[in-house]
Design a protein around this nucleic acid. Sequence first.
DNA 1: ATCCCGAGGG
DNA 2: CCCTCTGGAT
Length: 221
Amino acid sequence: MGTVPREALAKKRERAIEIANRMNAHYGMAECALHWWKDPFKLTIAVSLSAQTTDKSVNEVTPTLWKHYPNAYELAAARLSDVERILKSIGLYRNKSKNCIACAQMIVSDFNGEVPHTMDELTKLPGVGRKTANIVLNEAFGIVEGIAVDTHVFRIAHKLQLARSDAPLKTEQELLKLYPQSYWKPINHQWVLFGRETCIARHPRCSECFLSDLCPSAHVE
DNA sequence: ATCCCGAGGG
DNA sequence: CCCTCTGGAT
């Protein structure tokens, strides 16, 4: 579709950088809201469980999950009904139970019990897509090769008119083209915090927002 | 495009 | 009742 005129693109990029600078000023280097982020296995499972679910809900079930299954070998041997009982309170629990066991089994059988370090390998794990893989690469291995686009990043990118596509994967590509790589790492956590406390999905607090003068969607009352 | 699917808020 | 929550597989 439309090739954006060069000058308009420069303007857009300039606005995007200013947005990132203000996010940095406001949130600094935000940390992962999920617990267990230092253990690659627990991080991988916890992030995959967080699909369409609040991190608060995930943090309520993971202590029980780790108590029974502290590593890939234990979870790989788990009974489905036992895991379903533990995950019952989070959404999509049947898929997540089946996937996290299968994920652990693949880590054991194909990767010697270690969470793999590449995008291709990570996204082969059941229940692990690009979003989860980006988080794991970023937090567990210090590898930044993409931006994790979740519901918050997707919504905010559109509200700020930094992206137009209808799919998270395309949104990621738009953001990757818009920002230099040095800007990629903090985007996910900062935008998630911003999405939870200011650019709330149902009731965005535009009048209190530190980005409202840069936001085409801002409504001032 | 559709399904999965509990908890919390309005 | 409705919508949303750090998505992924078919």
